[in-house]
Each structure stands twice: as structure tokens, then as C-alpha cells.
Write a protein that binds this DNA or RNA. Structure first.
Lengths: 281, 281
DNA sequence: ATGTCTTTGTGAACGCGTGCACAAAGATGG
DNA sequence: CCATCTTTGTGCACGCGTTCACAAAGACAT
């Protein structure tokens, strides 16, 4: 789900299922809201509604943490807040570095959600010498040269990468080499890391593309299909199309019999009728 | 996975599994990179490595789209780029509005990944009258009052919410009422939407908390456990703790026998020894 | 043509996550 | 102390997603 390489079977060590871990922050947020309103206890049903999940699922999730509820009553809000915080490791604070102080990096640095929840921005790092010394969100940006020293001196184990895609892997390698073992990656690249390092990815354009897919299907279901055929017909068309492509390539090979034909952007042909709209990365 | 409310059994209509859809953008990115290097064909093994997934999974994913490969050779890069683009609905461009032009909203507006991949920022909307008219990323910010008109005039069906948590649900409701059916939510709240509307959530602090969990476990596995007991012991302790909480509450009830005791931040007590560090939302 | 070699496409098994439904636990009232 | 009522905790079944492993398909050489 997160790691680019690590084929971890998720939950291994007799711990909490990964899916549950991913929901704990959700519960914590809902509970904190209740806590602020001084609500003493909450039932699984109520809390589940607040967190937007099924109540049975919530109870099962909590059962992995231990039996923290009282039958007939519900859960003690304050106590549960503490237990979840503890389970998530939020009772200590984690120094975090943000690498790549562009628009996004600066926005992250200014994001209030960090400091308030056990995370402390230990440093902002950027490769641009012109940025060095400039304050962002009240913290002076430091140059990439200092990266290793910053990590070591502050005991940083969590790094946030907000650089352009091209620099991400290199930055990642340096972070890992310096001792970082958890990375939150905003760059649109697959990061390769050694075992034992966790990577989570946040990718805006991927999210949008997933939405676009569903959006298109909604539109396609309502109206008559313009560029979409039935599933069976599509499979057949696909097979024909593949054949067409092959023939084109063979013809090309005849024309230029030498090595592998550098079939650039020239001989592409939309077998489904219209010209394929290929867009850059 | 995404929707806060919609209990969609994922894949329903004989289409492509949700998990596969989520990976298509990944494949597309890897393929686009290959395309730029004019690589004509690619095997499932190579492409899988580039996308950071299992090759069998990749082949199965592609099999849902149709038979686009050639046995003994691999997949035609250009053709596959087109097919995936088409499947994801990226052959048309989607007008998108961003609501909430703070640090994050501005960063999103400036993000290049939008325009280059079939998405067009149709408008930037903010509730602050002082922002109105100010250009961000070359686009003049418009006031929230114009929201409905903007959506309708531009035929916007995808909205991005980058407002503070408090305003998110209200903005969401207005977007949906105006015709938006897909929402990308950056605000740390659970959004409630009617059926047929897709919501995907991006939550920075949740991602960090998940990382913190794993980070803590890594630390706990190496060194002697400081605040973590064995799983069995923990369950027992939990039960004892719960009992302690109950007794406290009973005592409190005796002291102030009236209605529900407003157990604010005063009578909380860390049953595991130390004081619970409860942090704000 | 025929055989060999590569790579796809997929049947089948397995494991995780989800949700139902219910028994056990405890609160509450008499 | 007993009965009733609420809510938790969980056994169980089901479905989705992942992975293995292999047959079929096609390229390529002879």
C-alpha cells in the first residue's frame, strides 16, 4: 500500500492489522473532538458514525488494542484518547524534516496539523542556495549539504520529501543513509528503499485520475456510450487492435530492417478510431 | 477506501476492480517515461519493476482492460499509454475548481501535475473577500459567492477542498448541490455526501501518524520496551485499567450525585502509570 | 514447417478485511 | 438478589485482492 519495494505481508508480528492502524488516527480525531466537548463516554455506534465507519469494524479494531470498553455503557473518551495516542506513538514527539521547500513544502511547513499532534518540524531543507537562511513558517531553511548533520544531531527518524520527482530518489537515499526510517513522499515517483524503511506516498494527480475514472463511468452510464463499447465487444476490439499494431510494426520493420525500430511518436495509431491523445508525464 | 459514507462494494458494475484502478495511474506514469525515451515495447516484468509492483499483479490488472500484450514480446508502450489514458478518462480534460486558497490551496494551484495530465484548473475560490481578484498561479481568485455560478458555467464535476476543517462540510454541500460529483478532500474531516458522489481524502497528519506507529514499533522491537508490555500482559493491564476508571467514575458520582458528571480534563488519570498526554485536535 | 524459447493471460488457492449476528458482561431498576 | 436492558467483544462466513504456477500464444531460428 505504501512501500515501493518492501513486500511486507502487512501485519506480520502479532500486532495490529494494517487496516486498523490506518483507522486509528480517524478514531483519535473524532474522540478528541468529543473530549473537547467534555463528553465522558461514547458508544461504538456513535463513534463509528462520527468517524464514518461501520460500528462492528470499530469494535473489532478496538479489540486489537485490548478491552477498553464497558458493556452497556460504551467507551471512556479520555481513556481511549490516551490509549490510541499511546498505541500510535503520539505520547512522544517526533522530530520531522521537510526536504524541498517549494510551494508544497512551504505549505506543509505552515500546516498546523503537524505541531499539534506530536510532530515537530525540526528543519526545512532545500537544494537552492538562494533559499538558505530564508525563514519559512518561522524556521530558517537550511541547505541540502547540511542534511546528514541535521538528521544526526536531531535524531530525526521521519522525513518528508516534497522535492521535484527528479530529485526524490537521491534525497531519499541520503535520508535513509543518515538514519531516517520512515518517509512521507509527495514527489510523483516510486521510491526504492531498503527493508525496514517505511514509505508512504501522497500523490495528488493519482487521486485525481482515480476520480476521473469514476467520473467518466458515471457519465458513460447515463448517456449513450460514445467512446465506450460493451465489455465483450471491447475485448474483441482489443484483440483486433493488437493485431493491427503488429502489422504496422512488421511493415515498419520491412522498411527499416535494421535493429529495433525507433518507433518514436511517429507511427503510433489509434486503433479505436481516433488519434490517441498522449500527454506528457 | 475513499468515500466517507458510500458503502459501495467497490467493483460492482462488471468493471475494473477498484484496486486495479488505483494502480493504473502508476502504470501510466511509468509508461509515459518509457514513451519519452522512445522505448517501443516493455515486458510485464520490466514495467512492474518500474511501477514498484508484482508482475503477476500487473498482468492481471491489464487483463481487465483487454488483451493488449503480445506473448513472447510484451506490451506496446504507446498503445498501452493510450488505452490506459482512455480507460481513466484522460483523453478529455476535466475542469477542476479548488476551494480554499490558503497555503495548501495555493500550492495545489501551482502544482504542475494538474494541467499536464488532463486536468484544468477552471477556478480558484476562497471565502476571504480580501483574496478576491488576487492572482494565484496566474488565475484570479474568486469569492465563494460565485461558487454555484462557476460550477454551472464551466461544467465542473470535480472539486478540490483545501479549506480549514470547519468549513469543509459546508463547502462540500454547496459543491454537490451545484453539480459536483467527485471531491478530493484535503481538510481533516469526514465528509458526508449523498450516494453517487465520490470522495477521496488526502490527510497529511493521518499519514504521519501511521508512520509514527511503525516507527515506534521498530524502536520497541530493538530496545527493551519502556512503555510497552507484551501483548498478553497488555490485555490484562487494560482490563485492570478499565476497572480503575470505573471506580474513579463511581467515586466521582458519589461526590456529585447529580446528572452526568462533566468530567473535563480534570479527573483523567493514566492507569498505566504516567499522566496521559492528551493533545488537541 | 517444425521446434524452441519467451512472455502473456488466467485458473486456483490462499489470506486479509469486512460485516453479521449473537452470546457474554455489566449497568440499571425493582 | 433477581430480572431486564444495553452495549461490547468475537466467532463465523463471505468476498476481494494477491500470488503462484502453468498452459496457450506467438516470436524466432533452423
Amino acid at each position: 500500500m505504501a512501500t515501493g519495494r518492501t513486500h511486507r505481508p502487512a501485519t506480520r508480528s502479532r500486532g495490529i492489522p494494517e487496516a486498523t492502524v490506518a483507522r486509528l488516527p480517524l478514531y483519535l480525531r473524532a474522540l478528541t473532538a468529543l473530549s473537547e466537548r467534555s463528553v465522558p463516554t461514547v458508544s461504538s455506534e456513535e463513534l463509528a458514525a462520527a468517524a464514518g465507519v461501520n460500528s462492528a469494524k470499530l469494535r473489532k479494531d478496538f479489540s486489537y488494542l485490548g478491552s477498553y470498553g464497558t458493556r452497556g455503557v460504551g467507551y471512556d473518551v479520555e481513556y481511549l484518547v490516551y490509549q490510541i495516542s499511546r498505541e500510535l506513538g503520539l505520547t512522544q514527539d517526533w522530530p520531522v524534516v521537510i526536504v524541498g521547500i517549494g510551494n508544497l513544502g512551504a505549505a506543509l511547513a505552515n500546516y498546523g496539523g503537524f505541531a499539534s499532534r506530536g510532530f515537530r518540524v525540526a528543519a526545512l531543507i532545500d537544494a537552492d542556495p538562494a533559499m538558505a537562511g530564508k525563514p519559512v513558517a518561522g524556521i530558517a531553511v537550511q541547505h541540502t549539504d547540511e542534511l546528514e548533520k541535521i538528521i544526526t544531531d536531531n535524531g530525526v527518524s521521519i522525513g518528508v520529501i516534497a522535492t521535484p520527482a527528479g530529485a526524490a530518489q537521491q534525497v531519499c537515499d541520503r535520508l535513509v543513509a543518515a538514519g531516517v526510517t520512515s518517509i512521507l513522499n509527495f514527489a510523483p515517483t516510486v521510491l526504492t528503499v531498503p527493508d525496514g524503511v517505511d514509505v508512504r506516498k501522497v500523490d495528488l494527480s493519482i487521486e485525481l485520475q482515480i476520480l476521473a475514472f469514476h467520473e467518466q463511468r458515471k457519465a458513460g452510464e447515463d448517456a449513450g456510450h460514445d467512446d465506450e463499447e460493451s465489455d465483450d465487444a471491447r475485448a474483441v476490439a482489443a484483440r483486433e487492435a493488437r493485431r493491427a499494431v503488429r502489422e504496422v510494426r512488421e511493415a515498419a520493420a520491412k522498411g527499416a530492417p535494421a535493429a529495433d525500430a525507433p518507433a518514436g511518436a511517429s507511427d503510433r495509431k489509434g486503433p479505436d478510431g481516433d488519434v490517441p491523445a498522449v500527454m506528457p508525464a
